[in-house]
């Protein structure tokens, strides 16, 4: 896909209201995450016992927790963690899956073995695989990112392998091989550009999935550990007070939903704009 084609497709997406709404929502959340330390310095250890479990209001937009900590502040900082964790996880699966997919699609000798491995990989339900990996490596944010990344890798392998299989048969690849170009060059120069658009679409959708999985691990106590204000961990911490303080679970969980929803809207829009064949 050439650059002009990419821009034409992206311009087409501007007419997609859902995708644009997703983009705006995502920009807002990212802005909050980036600016959090400047607009709302947060010290999770700072507790104020005079304002415990206050309902949302003018003084505390989203209320306070059992230690009198401002939930809105925790949410802003939690967004930093959740978005970053999702991004790193999706990067792990993207890099790993794209390399394996390229190898499987381009080298017929590797295809059989990679496909076998993918079959076994996919035999484990995604979240359970992530849980199993954390069980082996030990709980914590870093291991949770590895676990989420590994458990989401097969979708990349399958996608990239399929695209490469199609591209390998094209004349320009044959021509490059005929003039003696090395495989690494052909893969980089002639095959990889074909993969770019589908990978952008998949990564957008997987970004949301990764945020969800990582938040689930944190909710189960396997990811971010308190006092790290990750959204899933915040919901988990608020769970015990759901009767008296619904806001402690509602807002962080709602934030996860909105971010994932934004990514889904954007991903759907990108898919329609870049590659209508992808379903």
């Amino acid at each position: 896909m050439t650059e002009t084609m990419l821009w034409t497709s992206l311009r087409r997406m501007r007419r997609n209201r859902g995708a644009m709404a997703g983009l705006v929502l995502l920009a807002l959340f990212s802005l909050g995450a980036i600016l959090a330390p400047y607009i709302a310095p947060y010290d999770p250890q700072a507790m104020h016992y005079d304002v415990r479990l206050l309902a949302p209001g003018l003084r505390f937009l989203m209320g306070t927790d059992e230690f009198g900590r401002d939930l809105f502040r925790a949410m802003l900082h939690g967004g930093r963690v959740s978005l970053l964790v999702g991004f790193i996880s999706v990067s792990i699966s993207g890099v790993l899956g794209t390399s394996l997919g390229l190898a499987a699609g381009y080298f017929p000798k590797l295809d059989g073995i990679v496909s076998r491995i993918v079959d076994i990989w996919l035999a484990f339900p995604t979240l359970l695989l992530a849980i199993a990996i954390v069980a082996v490596l030990g709980p914590g944010l870093r291991n949770a990112m590895i676990a989420v990344g590994i458990s989401a890798t097969p979708s990349y392998i399958r996608l990239v392998r399929g695209v490469v299989l199609g591209a390998r048969e094209r004349e320009y690849v044959e021509a490059a091989q005929a003039v003696g170009a090395r495989d690494a060059l052909i893969l980089r120069r002639h095959i990889l550009p074909n993969v770019a658009a589908p990978i952008i679409v998949l990564s957008t959708l997987q970004f949301g999935g990764a945020i969800l999985s990582a938040a689930s691990l944190s909710f189960l106590g396997l990811g971010a550990q308190p006092p790290t204000p990750e959204w899933g961990a915040l919901v988990s911490a608020g769970r015990g007070f759901i009767r008296q303080a619904w806001w402690l679970s509602l807002f962080p969980g709602g934030a996860i939903m909105l971010v994932v929803l934004a990514l889904n809207l954007l991903g759907d829009g990108l898919r329609d704009a870049l590659d209508p064949r992808l379903k």
Binding site: A215, G232, V235, G253
Partner: peptide, 21 residues
């Protein structure tokens, strides 16, 4: 879209709060 975007632990807590509590 909300169904596929909302974390299940959150849906669980919302349902629990509304229908059980």
């Amino acid at each position: 879209l909300i169904g596929i975007s909302a974390p299940s632990f959150w849906i669980a807590l919302v349902l629990m709060y509304v229908f059980a509590f």
